[in-house]
Simulated scan of single mutants.
Amino acid sequence: MKGTKAQSLRYQVEKWLAPTTPVHVTAFGRTRWGRARYVCVETWQATGSHSLFFFQHEDGYWHVFPPVADTPQWAVWRTGTDG
C-alpha cells in the first residue's frame, strides 16, 4: 500500500521530472467526462520544454493517466438487419 507522501502531486512531479528541476503549472481544472482534477506542469531543459499532465483519481492519488471513468468511450451499434 502506498503512503500518504506517494499520494501527493508534489511527489509525483518530482518522481517524473526530477526533484531539482524547476516546474511551472501551465494548466489546471477538471476533465470534461468525469470531472476529475488535472494539472499540467512544464519544465525547461537544454533539450527543450517538456509537459506532463497529472490526474487525481477517486482514491486521492495522482497519476499520469486519467481515471478509467474519464477515458472517452466509443461504442458501435448496428441498426437494421444483415443479409
Rank of each mutant, 00 (worst) to 15 (best):
Q45W: 03
M1I: 10
W44S: 13
M1L: 15
R32G: 09
L9Y: 04
K2M: 09
P66V: 09
Q7C: 10
P22R: 05
T31W: 02
G80S: 05
R30N: 11
T47L: 12
T81Y: 13
E58W: 06
W77R: 15
T47H: 13
P72E: 12
R30S: 11
E42F: 01
V23Q: 03
G83I: 04
P66L: 07
H24C: 05
G80N: 06
W77N: 09
V41P: 02
G83H: 06
V41E: 01
T26E: 00
L17Y: 03
Q45M: 11
V64Q: 13
W62M: 02
Q7H: 10
T31Q: 06
S51Q: 15
G3F: 06
E42G: 00
A27N: 15
R35S: 15
L52F: 01
A6Y: 10
A46D: 12
T79A: 08
Q73M: 09
P66S: 10
V13R: 00
Q73R: 14
Q45S: 14
Y61S: 05
G3Q: 06
S8L: 08
T31D: 02
T79G: 07
R78L: 14
H50V: 09
R32A: 10
W77G: 13
V25I: 15
K15R: 15
D59K: 08
R35Y: 11
W62T: 03
V23H: 06
P67L: 07
Y61A: 06
T21A: 02
V41Y: 01
M1G: 14
P72L: 12
F55S: 02
G3V: 09
W62V: 03
V64W: 04
K5G: 10
E58C: 07
E42A: 03
L9D: 07
K2P: 14
W74S: 09
R35E: 11
P66E: 07
K5M: 09
Y11L: 00
S8Q: 10
G48A: 14
